[in-house]
Design a protein around this nucleic acid. Structure first.
Lengths: 251, 251
DNA sequence: TCTCCCTATTTACTCCGACATATTTCCTGT
DNA sequence: ACAGGAAATATGTCGGAGTAAATAGGGAGA
């Protein structure tokens, strides 16, 4: 893609508009714009983002704002800048794909179905093990959080954002009960992917059977402190989701 | 901690010195300084980093450099800035603990042993499953990469940086063979932790038994395409490391 | 004549400090 | 207690000076 594709006058107007949104910052809007462009493949690894001055001029923003946006992308491993050489898009294996913001950019357009599959595969690996640990380490407060989330899920159902938030809360509370910060960090990333997929499936009117009973089984096992049962119950849950993802790949 | 602790004259001289190193950038050095300060607990969640101008002045750098450093920290979820309110350290669950750079900061000082344990626990969950997938999906090129890494490990041993790099390469090649980008991203994070621990243990002259045979078993199972054997062999490997970590916690 | 190395130029990032703006907080006055 | 204004502070902007690196050109040696 040429720079011009990203820097039409209309696009600039939209950028300025977005940037003025509540809480949004200018460099954040630029980072989002460039981030989605990279994640969607409009800029391929190895491509050069033409000069700082030129780009800032085209985007009608100051060089400082552009630079700060580049810093954000650099921090996430998407690009690297060197004097004279310009700012290059790094190879994909350097990207922090699990960064919540990068994930958001990946899901902003048409997400790569292969990547979605890999996230669900990761989930299918991590969450059963997490449920096992949670069954061993949870305390009363953890159980209460889980139960509250389950109640909210039942009330709102997954067709609403509130319901999906409750679903995320349920899974997050399990991760939290593992007393493992590294696992907990993962939950934010995985949650984003799951949320997007749930929305997508709902749009496609392909929501599977009622997920509540399966969730309850996980809760019961964790509450009972039965590690093996917790892992197995969670396995059922995530395998179902993984199968769904696999089948939707064939569309 | 007060700002003064971070901004003594000597510290500034060191900062400038570091920054002028080859390839190093000033805002990168500042981000490293602040990042390690936060990760080490000198700044606790909720603490505010006193005013932009004040801090930049104390550090003897321009506001731009300081601002760009803050952008980096913000991108990694460590801090958030709001007009008038100042720049606050975010709660720990917002941190991107799996970001390679954050991980580097965590290991720069005296890393929290509890956090190290959580990383190894994550590893013990992920790597056996990865070995299973690798056994099913690896191709000839993957196997060659693994074999080369094994050979290098044998030659250099884990007492040298070259040997540890080979160890990382071996594990990375397995993750690569899973054809799963999300898993691959994790390997960089986990590798950093493992590397640090290996160094640490070596210093403490507590290197365990020869790790090569266990690695060979993993390789053989993956080469044979035996998923269960691969998972089990990797399980032995990571459980050993996890046990080591647990025991060193008692020191 | 060809190759290699060294130097100079050019180019683009990096850093700087001042200025302008917006928003939040706090204080003051009603 | 409330409303409005002033102060404080972060954000956005600008253009210039500095610096590092890639490329091109010229010179020396084979």
């Amino acid at each position: 893609m040429t720079d011009a594709d990203l820097t039409t006058t209309e696009a600039n107007a939209k950028l300025a508009e977005e940037a003025r949104g509540p809480g949004r910052r200018l460099h954040g809007a630029i980072a989002h714009k460039l981030g989605t462009a990279i994640l969607s493949g409009k800029y391929a690894p190895g491509d050069i983002l033409s000069g700082e001055v030129a780009f800032a001029e085209e985007l009608q923003v100051s060089r400082s704002a552009y630079r700060e946006a580049i810093q954000v992308l650099t921090a996430k491993g998407l690009v690297a800048s060197r004097p004279k050489a310009g700012t290059r898009v790094l190879p994909r294996d350097r990207w922090n794909l699990l960064d919540p913001e990068v994930l958001g950019w990946a899901f902003a357009g048409e997400p790569d179905i292969e990547f979605v599959r890999s996230l669900f595969e990761l989930r299918a690996i991590v969450e059963p093990a997490a449920a096992r640990l949670a069954a061993l380490r949870r305390d009363k407060a953890d159980l209460k959080t889980m139960k509250d989330a389950l109640t909210a899920m039942r009330r709102h159902t997954l067709t609403t954002e509130a319901g999906r938030a409750a679903d995320r809360d349920f899974h997050k509370s399990i991760l939290q009960a593992t007393r493992n910060d590294a696992l907990l960090t993962l939950s934010a990333s995985i949650g984003a992917a799951v949320n997007w997929t749930t929305q997508f499936k709902q749009r496609a009117r392909a929501l599977p059977r009622n997920p509540i009973p399966d969730h309850v089984k996980v809760y019961d096992a964790i509450a009972a402190g039965d590690a093996n049962a917790a892992a197995e119950a969670m396995n059922v849950l995530v395998d179902l989701a993984l199968e769904d993802t696999r089948s939707s790949m064939e569309d």
